[in-house]
Design a protein around this nucleic acid. Structure first.
Length: 704
RNA sequence: GCCAGCAUAGCUCAGUGGUAGAGCAGUUCUUUCGUAAAGAACAGGUCGCGAGUUCAAAUCUCGCUGCUGGCUCCA
């Protein structure tokens, strides 16, 4: 067989060899460090025979630096090496759990970007108190440094073995593997293959009792349990078979693994730091928002400081909307049920809406008729009762504004914008600080245009996103273009329209100059869309904005404009909320800036700190001048030492601290301290104001 | 909604069945201070809510509410 190595060189072998043999042939050092292989782009066990002529890259364990941290060849962790390690650790954890709770049924245990999990089913639920016990068992297995040994069985032998073991999840996994083109079933034994061979390799034989663990698994794995340098059982959650809530429920046990203890420690330290950066920690601490049990779950109360950030951001966005020819509208928070029946949102999304508000007269007449709660509920379900809905989206209201006038093709596009507040009944377990709420204000707009205008309008939407993201220094976002699934018939509209709209979306996405993915089947049923996705501090992805092309609602509401031919034509709608909601966007922003907003967004932009109360008069004089220049500024006249005032201002992330004492009073200066640069020395008041105004009005980013 | 965990002063937390604790914040007084916490005194709690067990419950049991992690969902 002919093996091509990553550097392009080739090696030939007379017999079928494994990656281990190739590594040994290259050098003893490599052989020692090798833990797996990548064969034609596919991960392989180190000792698994190579399939034939192929390209081969040896995956090695990292070296260690002086502090015991992994030292990776190209500076960043090798995802493949960690994959092998974590996948293997999932098996070790599964073995430990099976030993502690013999009735455990294993379902599925894959590696993740930052660890692994195993879905298990057992009678006695595991709790976090059990983690230590599990880790102790895992430690033993790792210390025994047992090999991971793969063996394959053909389906005729493999399926009876699985049937005998009686784990329906593994049988299901095996079936799926075959559907995906597997030719054999593979098991991984955490131990020498002799533990099987001693039974004459009879897969139906009872497995030996000593240190034997095997798991149906496609692999691959690290060569030995000892490869796992450090691990930790992290958390436990509930999950369902194939993510189907109506199907069997599992306990999902999360863990993580690293090559060294120092790596694990660093990871845990990073997690702790991320927690400190969480908007749910910083937000309340900085007085930005609160959520109150008496008001309701998922209902954000914007406190004065948060309101400033939001207002500034809205002003900024509104400024650009005006520039782009948007017209501002305002619409009420409720609308009649019929509106949402026309739009199709009710009753299809009934479960994610607040229940309808039914008129007093109607409730009374129903009561007079002796209507029971059950009847009321079923009439509501059937849509026989009229009422009002807290609006779950703004589009129907905007559509009715469009429909209130007759439009010529010359008027198009019409762009209606509103910071519109909508309400959605999200499941309680999904609520999350400002990121996932039940009442939110979208930076919403609806564009009504001709089909030919769609491409330009999409460009315009993305232009706005680009401006705002650049101004805020947010470069770390992902763009997802959702297209139709060619094999599905759930989509409405003509294929030609779709082709045009899809290519317009892709062209628009390209113009952003950031990575984007086109995902078939991710489009809305009424049209393709462009979504913006960012990660929070703990790595969770949140969709911010979306831009959607819609052919459906104009039909449902029978919208039209008069064309050059004097005939009615159907407009195309574009829904766009490029930042999603103010709640989520500012939640993301809090974490992005770690609470230290740029000057223009800071709730308090400056704080004047007199060094003693002898200088409060001068401090007030300075403050008045700053206020006259439009700054949000306060004097800290408390009876405290300067150091204490500075500490408080730093903690409040106030951009500028202006220290004033005798020297400043005499010279007409302020001693400027920048929250991240520290002491900048004395500056004449007017000069400081001028520079700060430039920084504020230019919406400059303070920290690079 | 589901599984596990958590809930003690405004905040961070200690308190394993026997008189509710600390630090910070707050109030008052002293101090008048030049770049990340001056000192002292005072005040502050129905231990999330409701039942139960017990001579006795912050502590044990059950239910509820809220929060955290994950699952599912996100028009």
């Amino acid at each position: 067989m002919k093996i091509t190595l990553p550097d392009g060189s080739e090696k030939s072998f007379d017999t079928q060899v494994s990656a281990a043999a190739v590594a040994a042939d290259i050098g003893a050092g490599l052989a020692k460090a090798a833990i797996g292989a990548k064969v034609d782009g596919e991960l392989y066990d180190l000792n698994r025979p190579l399939p034939g002529d192929c390209s081969l890259a040896i995956i090695t364990r990292p070296r260690e630096d002086k502090k015991g941290k992994s030292k990776w060849p190209n500076g960043k962790p090798d995802a493949d090496a960690l994959y092998l390690l974590r996948h293997s650790c999932a098996h070790v954890m599964a073995e430990a759990i099976c030993k502690l709770w013999p009735d455990t049924k294993l379902a599925y245990g894959p590696p993740l970007d930052n660890g692994f999990y195993y879905d298990i089913s057992l009678d006695t639920p595991i709790s976090s108190d059990d983690f230590e016990k599990i880790e102790a068992e895992m430690k033993k297995i790792v210390q025994e440094d047992r090999p991971f040994t793969r063996y394959d069985l053909d389906p005729d032998t493999g399926f009876p073995k699985l049937e005998k073991e009686g784990n329906k999840y593994k049988i299901d996994n095996a079936k799926r593997a075959f559907e995906q083109g597997a030719s054999d079933l593979s098991w991984y034994v955490t131990g020498p293959i002799e533990s099987i061979k001693s039974n004459g390799l009879d897969p139906l034989a009872k497995p030996p009792k000593v240190s034997h663990f095997e798991d149906l698994c496609q692999g691959p794995h690290a060569p030995n349990t000892g490869t796992i340098g450090a691990f930790k059982v992290m958390s436990i959650a509930s999950s369902n078979w194939h993510g189907d809530v109506t199907s069997d429920r599992f306990q999902r046990v999360y863990g993580t693994a690293f090559f060294t203890q120092a790596d694990l420690d660093e990871h845990l330290e990073n997690l702790e730091q991320a927690r400190q950066r969480d908007h749910r920690v910083i937000g309340p601490r900085l007085g930005l928002y609160t959520i109150d049990e008496q008001v309701g779950q998922g209902l954000v109360l914007w406190k004065p400081n948060g309101a400033v950030v939001r207002q500034e951001l809205q002003n900024f966005i509104a400024e650009h909307l005006t520039r782009q020819g948007y017209k501002q509208v305002f619409t009420p928070h409720i609308g009649k049920l019929g509106l949402y029946k026309t739009s199709g949102h009710y009753p299809y999304y009934q479960e994610s809406q607040y229940p309808a508000l039914v008129s007093r007269e109607q409730v009374q007449s129903l009561a007079d008729e002796g209507c029971s709660c059950a009847q009321l509920s079923s009439q509501m379900e059937a849509g026989e009762i009229d009422g009002y809905l807290l609006k779950p989206m703004n589009c129907p209201h905007h559509i009715r504004i469009f429909a209130s006038d007759k439009h010529s093709y010359r008027d198009l596009p019409i762009r209606l914008a509103e910071f519109g507040t909508v309400y959605r009944w999200e499941q309680s377990g999904e609520l999350n600080g400002m990121m996932r709420v039940r009442g939110m204000t979208q930076d919403d707009a609806h564009l009504f245009c001709t089909e030919d205008q769609v491409a330009d309008e999409l460009q315009g939407c993305l232009e706005l996103v680009k401006i705002v993201f650049n101004t805020l220094g947010m470069n770390d976002y992902r763009v997802r273009v959702g297209l139709r699934d060619p094999d599905s018939d759930k989509y409405v509209g003509e294929p030609e329209q779709w082709d045009k709209a899809e290519s317009a979306c892709i062209t628009a996405a390209k113009s952003l100059g950031v990575p984007f993915s086109s995902e078939a089947g991710e489009g809305a049923f009424y049209g393709p869309k462009i979504d913006f996705v960012v990660k929070d501090v703990i790595g969770r992805e949140w969709q911010l904005g979306t831009v959607q092309v819609d052919y459906q609602l104009p039909i449902r509401f029978d919208l039209s404009y008069t064309g050059a031919d004097n005939q009615p034509h159907r407009p195309v709608m574009i829904h766009r909320a490029p930042f999603g909601s103010m709640e989520r966007f500012i939640g993301v922003l809090i974490e992005h800036f770690n609470g230290a907003f740029p000057l223009w967004l800071s709730p308090q932009q400056m704080r004047v700190l007199p060094i003693s109360d002898k200088f409060t008069d001068y401090a007030q004089e300075v403050t008045d001048k700053l206020k006259a220049a439009g700054f949000r500024v306060e004097v800290d006249a408390n009876n405290e030492r300067l150091n204490a005032k500075i500490k408080l201002a730093q903690e409040a992330k106030v951009p500028y601290m202006l220290v004033v004492g005798g020297k400043d009073k005499d010279a007409g200066t302020v001693s400027v301290r920048h929250r991240s640069e520290g002491d900048r020395g004395a500056v004449p008041v007017e000069a400081f104001i001028e520079a700060a105004m430039k920084e504020r009005d230019g919406r400059e980013l303070m920290e690079s």
